[in-house]
């Protein structure tokens, strides 16, 4: 069954029959983590890199920002039985406008913040598809770990 992760939202699930899906990632980033041993999956769709622009919104909804959403995602999968050493981590999104000057670079900053956080916490990315100017819909099948990206009518598997 599809479990939809909205923008600024995260969901975790321990159910091999479930598929986590998030629609229409622009410069936002979708983070999917999966424990193949315990069949636990989690997905985050965050909007912006730093919660410092609106601490009260981050408190109400940590999934809006990378620096609050990513730790919350990991903590939430551990709570339902995932183990850090098992986790497979895949990400997609971080797109940008057609832009020679690098303004409006939310996508890039979203990615940099994620890399820094992962580096600090010794999390490896197993696969990623970031950048470009396309919108992406991503799915994680919690039973098989299959992670797919749909964009402009085409599906690719990472």
């Amino acid at each position: 069954m599809d479990r939809v992760v909205d923008i600024a939202d995260l969901k975790v699930v321990k159910d091999p029959g479930a598929t986590l899906v998030t629609y229409s990632l622009g410069s936002c980033i979708g983070v999917a983590i999966w424990d193949p041993v315990n069949l636990v999956g989690g997905m985050l769709h965050y909007m912006l890199p730093e919660s410092s622009i609106s601490p009260e919104k981050a408190k109400a909804n940590p999934a809006m920002f990378a620096d609050t959403g990513i730790p919350t995602l990991f903590r939430s999968v551990y709570k339902i039985g995932a183990q850090k050493s098992n986790l497979v981590v895949k990400i997609a999104g971080g797109a940008h406008l057609l832009d020679d000057n690098g303004t409006f670079n939310i996508g890039k900053r979203n990615y940099v913040t994620l890399r820094k956080l992962f580096w600090k916490n010794k999390v490896m990315i197993d696969a990623e598809q970031v950048g470009g100017s396309i919108s992406r819909t991503v799915r994680l099948n919690v039973g098989t770990g299959r992670f797919t990206i749909h964009s402009r009518g085409k599906e690719t598997e990472l």
């Binding site: 923008i7 229409s24 410069s27 409006f104 919108s135 402009r152 009518g153």
Partner: peptide, 9 residues
């Protein structure tokens, strides 16, 4: 557009 709200092809 950046936030991907209702964007298509």
């Amino acid at each position: 557009l950046l936030l991907g709200i209702g964007i298509g092809a």
